[in-house]
Amino acid sequence: MDSPLLFPVKLEGSQIRVLDETQIPFKEEYITVDTLGKALWVLSAMKTRSLGQVLLFFYSCVLFSDKFSIDQISEKFKQKRPTFDFLFLAQILKGQTQKTGDIRSAALGFISGFDKLRQARAARLAQMLPAQASILTICNVNGELIYLYQALERISKKAKFIVCETRPYLQGVRLTFWELRKNNIDARLICDNQVAALMKEKKINCVVTGADRATTKGDVINKVGTYSIACLAKYFNIPFYSLTQYPRDIDVNSIPIEERLKDESFMFLEGDFSQVDAVYPAFDVTPAKFVTECVEITGSR
């Protein structure tokens, strides 16, 4: 089993190669990044996100640290995607660099270790899920559902995934559904507003989502739409698991919610919508009371 989304950004010599996630499933194309400006464009144009933006940040620090400090790069990344915690990533990288002596080995070592942690996290989550898991998910967690499926198989549990399409960028359809189907994993695709109906019909018995940010209290910020699912899961008594990394001891409401351009609300639709006003916050907040368990990357929760 494999997915290009497990490592959507690669360091190749003096260039970064970024999987253009906006083209999947129709094309598997990589964008070559050889300047910080290009890296920032890739980030702001949503060519990569989630784990991809972490990799892009680390590799940008490796390649461009002769001209920019790690802090400067993190600040520039944060300006493009303000909800994500690039400043904390900078702290991690600086800490690792102090240990190894150079940025390259620090970044590569961290990334290699991070993948092992993701596999271990999937194995821990597998223990928590039902023996016949009917797992609702939203957006995309960069191949970690494949790790989860494998972990469930190892302990003789069955899994079926129900994937929310995840408007407006359709990461659920284009990335998650695509990578699951490509690996012959049982997956069903739904519109984002079908969650309540399926929960009522008892077709979902657990929810697994990613998390762009998390707090030590257990609050989570993730792709917009996550909060609705969490509310409905609570209402129907369905456990909600969030895959988190490095929670911070901060007030979740102090984290800025990125509002994207209104035009992005109409992604993939044909027509002239310039006269239609729209609002598109890219993330939402899920308070801890709706989260059954934050499955932390370090295993601390």
Binding site: R167, D192, V224, G225, Y227, S228, F266, L269, A278, D284
Partner: peptide, 26 residues
């Protein structure tokens, strides 16, 4: 919402803002 309500509200001059269904929760 896009193909029916937006057009109707424009015609009636009622102030509106459009969003994908996922935004309602926030």
């Amino acid at each position: 919402g896009l193909y029916h309500n937006v057009e109707l509200l424009k015609k009636e001059n009622i102030e509106f803002v459009y969003c994908v269904d996922n935004v309602l929760g926030l």
